[in-house]
């Protein structure tokens, strides 16, 4: 069990374990008692997992064992060849990208890459990119545009890295450039939020024709901790901030920002990765198929219209 809120389930499961041991040791038949407890476990799971709070989803979205971009690529695509570097300054390992085939068709894949352990996280800078990362992403997108390949982006980042070198090399400009250049791409762009979608650093891979979100993924203008400390002057109010900011996949679907929510196995994608890959595969394939019906100009127009329609304001007479 990974999370504090799963403790009641863990306790029941431990109890079952003890009973089984006791029964075996003393050669007793406790099947009835055990099955009673198993039923309780199922009920408890349903109660907890069917009522996850936004903050609990944040915890799931950030979980170290949650599948990352490279795992999705490995499971869902063939012949992946990773490409490196921004041709300006460095190769930023916080963003990965390259070409692959998807159901036989060449595609460009780009995604934030979190580390899968501490050492990997240091290499990946916890999935928080410098300008070099966004510029690598842009280079690969322009390449995709030239060769008429769909672009598939995986979003999984706390945000753009807040560092001195990042500012000096134009963190703002690198994100801003991606937004306008993505707006102008004439190939299908599908972005999938697989974990945490943190602000501008997430959006830099997110100006798309279709936005898909995993059930427990989140997407927010600021982290709940940040919002709590700035807006409520108290970072311990992160649970409330997570509620108020409307950051869950269902929230974004309701707001008309996410196009489809990808169901996860009970408790989160980490519990059954293959099922998640399969579900996403079905949905991704469907949207790519739909978008393949549009010509190059129509794809840009479709994206333009998607974003022009987002916003809630009043028109006073």
């Amino acid at each position: 069990m990974a999370f504090e809120f799963e403790k009641p389930i863990q306790e029941l499961e431990e109890k079952i374990g003890e009973l089984e041991k006791y029964a075996a040791k003393n050669k007793l038949d406790l099947t009835k008692e055990i099955s009673f407890l198993e039923k309780k476990v199922t009920d408890k799971k349903n109660e907890i997992y069917n009522n996850l709070t936004p903050w609990q989803r944040v915890e799931i979205a950030r979980y170290i064992n949650r599948p990352t971009t490279l795992e999705y690529i490995d499971a869902m695509f063939d012949d992946f060849i990773e490409f490196f570097g921004d041709r300006v300054y460095s190769d930023d390992a916080a963003i990965v990208g390259g070409i692959a085939t998807y159901k036989g068709t060449p595609v460009t894949i780009i995604g934030h890459q979190r580390g899968r352990d501490t050492k990997d996280n240091i290499k990946r800078n916890f999935g928080m990119a410098h300008p070099d990362g966004y510029r690598k992403a842009l280079r690969l997108m322009k390449q995709a545009d030239k060769f008429n390949r769909p672009v598939i982006c995986f979003i999984d980042t706390k945000g753009a890295y807040p560092g001195r070198a990042a500012e000096e090399r134009g963190q703002s400009e690198s994100i801003a450039r991606n937004l306008v250049e993505m707006a102008g791409l004439k190939v299908p762009v599908i972005s999938v939020v697989i974990g945490e979608g943190g602000s501008g650093g997430a959006l830099a891979l997110g100006v798309c024709n279709r936005l898909l979100m995993l059930e427990n993924a989140t997407y927010s203008v600021i982290s709940p901790e940040g919002a709590a400390s700035i807006l409520f002057k108290d970072s311990s109010l992160k649970e409330i901030a997570a509620e108020s900011l409307k950051i869950t996949a269902d929230d974004l679907k309701e707001l008309g920002i996410a196009d489809e929510v990808i169901a996860e196995p009970q408790g989160g994608a980490h519990n059954d990765k293959d099922t998640v890959y399969g579900t996403l595969d079905g949905v991704l394939g469907k949207h790519l198929e739909e978008l393949s019906q549009l010509d190059r100009d129509a794809l840009m127009e479709d994206r333009y219209q998607k974003y022009m329609d987002i916003g809630v304001y009043e028109e006073q007479s």
Binding site: A176, L179, V180, E181, M182, A183, G184, S199, G200, L203, G206, V207, Y219, S220, V221, I222, A227, I230, L231, S244, L245, K246, I247, D251, L252, L255, I257, R303, Y304, Y307, M308, I310, G311, V312
Partner: peptide
């Protein structure tokens, strides 16, 4: 920056203005 009280909708305004800039 973005107006936090409008949550993700405010973040999306960055994209909205960008698509208009690009046109």
């Amino acid at each position: 920056g973005a107006r936090m009280q409008e949550g993700i909708i405010s973040l999306m305004q960055m994209a909205k203005v960008s698509v208009a800039v690009e046109k």
